[in-house]
Amino acid sequence: MKTIPLDRAPPTLADAPQRAGFPGYLACFNGIVWREMLRFIHQRERFLSALVRPLVWLFIFAAGFRQVLGVSIIPPYETYVLYEVFVTPGLIGMILLFNAMQSSLSMVYDRETGTMRTLLVSPFPRWFLLTSKLIGGGAVALLQVYVFLLIAYAWEIEPPLLGYLTVLPALFLASLMLGALALFMSSIIKQLENFAGVMNFVIFPMFFASSALYPLWRIRESSPLLYEICRFNPFTHAVELIRFALYAQIDPASLAAVLGFTAVFLAAAIYAYNPSKGLLGRRGAPGGTA
């Protein structure tokens, strides 16, 4: 073991000024987003599985389903489209959904190992820290989506070039909404192993009871109740927002719904992580050590 040179003059605050105000907030935000990116880069398996999952659906499921499910001309499409084209926004939604839930998983894990504590002892306001973390997670998801779109392009899923740009804010908003939902859930989930429950009770129902895989009018034909559930599902609106944005259009109803859900989920998550109001202090998390 090395000896510790305690006789050194201590560093002083003047050497490295701590910044308050806007530059301080910006430095904090950049640091959080940068860490999310670094973590993602270091977890290659996560990137690969995040990419392979929607590609399997695109290459195998969609190819098989092409003959089974006819998609009529519905906005934003102007001609008949192949099932692969229809399902692409849904698969983008899937990437965002899994990414958000995985960050929820890492939140639970973080909280248990204490990384969340490190974040929360920062002197910046908690709403700012949590929102920055969500945006960091969202940035990671955007990266995945664009790589997916690039591969999909080779599979002849060719939205207009402008669509690649206009889909960006939609992706950002959708990932923020799903991230906020996941963050709120992470404050409720007690144990890491409960993520299997998250898969069964959140990811699958959200994904299947949405317009990701089939147009809603098809669902209405088979079950009006399911149709209503799908219409209420925030994920449906995220997918529709992305679907229209990918063709350089805005679906006002979906935009309003996604904005509304984002606000509600974000408020709930910030509430849950607020030490004086939230759930953390009531039940003895994190770590379980007293």
Binding site: D15, A16, P17, Q18, R19, A20, P23, G24, Y25, A27, C28, N30, G31, I32, W34, R35, T118, L119, V121, S122, P123, F124, L129
Partner: peptide, 13 residues
Amino acid sequence: YHAALHGFGRAAA
């Protein structure tokens, strides 16, 4: 990362 959480710029951190 920790320095950023306390508002330090990159170089100072």
